[in-house]
Simulated scan of single mutants.
Amino acid sequence: MRRRAARWQRHQGRLGHRRRADLHGGGDLRAGWDLCVGGRLALAGGAQAGQDLRADGAIECAKGLRAGGDIESQRSIRTGQGIEAGGSVRSGMHLEAGWGVRATGDIAAAGAIHVGESLQAEGTISAGPGYGIYAGVHVQVEAWHTCAPVRASMRPQALMSGWWDGGGTGSSPAMA
């Protein structure tokens, strides 16, 4: 029994967690390396991965998501709090966060992007064809410039709300 436990600990430390089915949890989930789920990831808490966090199904967390690398779902991503990625954030459908989303890469969704506060990417921010990007939906319009900034390498074409604060290209409300 002791040999099996030691092998499992080495496996966890080196590869992280991989699961081929849905993964449901009543609290927080942490993986030291990758977290890969073959189905839906649904947590009553938040999820944190040292590297990439990927799911073939939807990702739904009552709290936030954090990964040292990419965060990717073939379906929708929905969090009650924020999303932070050391790489890119990609959603096969809609992307929703109660607070904000920050990524050192791109933020992309095949559907709409809907965040309560700020939206920040070092790369680009894009929604699917015919869908919009909505930042600051939980913030009064008068406070957008401080509480709902949208930053990216270029202004998102489908930006519907939030305060565009692009690197050196000026700042303005999304509606301008």
Rank of each mutant, 00 (worst) to 15 (best):
M1L: 06
M1T: 07
R3F: 13
R4Q: 12
R4I: 12
A5G: 01
A5W: 02
A6M: 09
W8V: 03
Q9M: 11
Q9L: 14
Q9V: 12
Q9E: 14
R10P: 02
H11N: 15
H11T: 11
Q12M: 08
Q12S: 06
G13W: 05
G13F: 06
R14P: 00
R14S: 13
H17E: 02
A21E: 15
D22T: 00
L23K: 07
D28C: 00
L29D: 01
A31L: 01
G32A: 09
D34E: 15
D34C: 11
G38A: 05
G38S: 10
G39Y: 11
G39H: 05
R40L: 13
R40Q: 14
L43S: 08
L43A: 07
A44R: 14
A47D: 14
Q48D: 09
G50H: 04
D52N: 15
D52E: 15
D52K: 06
L53P: 09
L53T: 13
G57E: 05
I59V: 02
E60H: 13
C61S: 11
C61N: 06
G64F: 02
G64T: 01
G69H: 12
I71P: 12
S73L: 04
S76D: 12
R78N: 03
G80Q: 03
Q81I: 02
I83Y: 09
A85M: 01
A85D: 07
A85P: 00
G86Q: 10
G87I: 11
V89C: 04
V89R: 05
M93P: 00
E96T: 09
E96Q: 06
W99E: 08
V101Y: 07
R102S: 13
T104P: 00
I107D: 11
A109W: 03
A110N: 15
A110T: 12
G111N: 12
I113Y: 03
H114W: 15
G116F: 10
G116N: 10
E117M: 09
L119T: 11
L119P: 14
Q120D: 05
Q120A: 06
Q120I: 13
A121Q: 02
A121K: 03
E122W: 05
T124H: 13
I125K: 10
G128P: 04
P129H: 14
P129S: 15
Y134H: 14
A135H: 10
V137F: 00
V139W: 05
V139T: 11
E142L: 08
A143Y: 09
A143E: 12
A143I: 00
W144K: 04
T146W: 06
C147S: 14
C147K: 15
R151S: 09
A152C: 04
A152W: 03
M154D: 14
R155C: 09
R155F: 02
R155K: 14
P156W: 05
P156D: 01
P156F: 09
L159Y: 05
M160W: 09
D165Q: 13
G167C: 04
T169K: 10
T169P: 01
G170C: 14
G170Y: 15
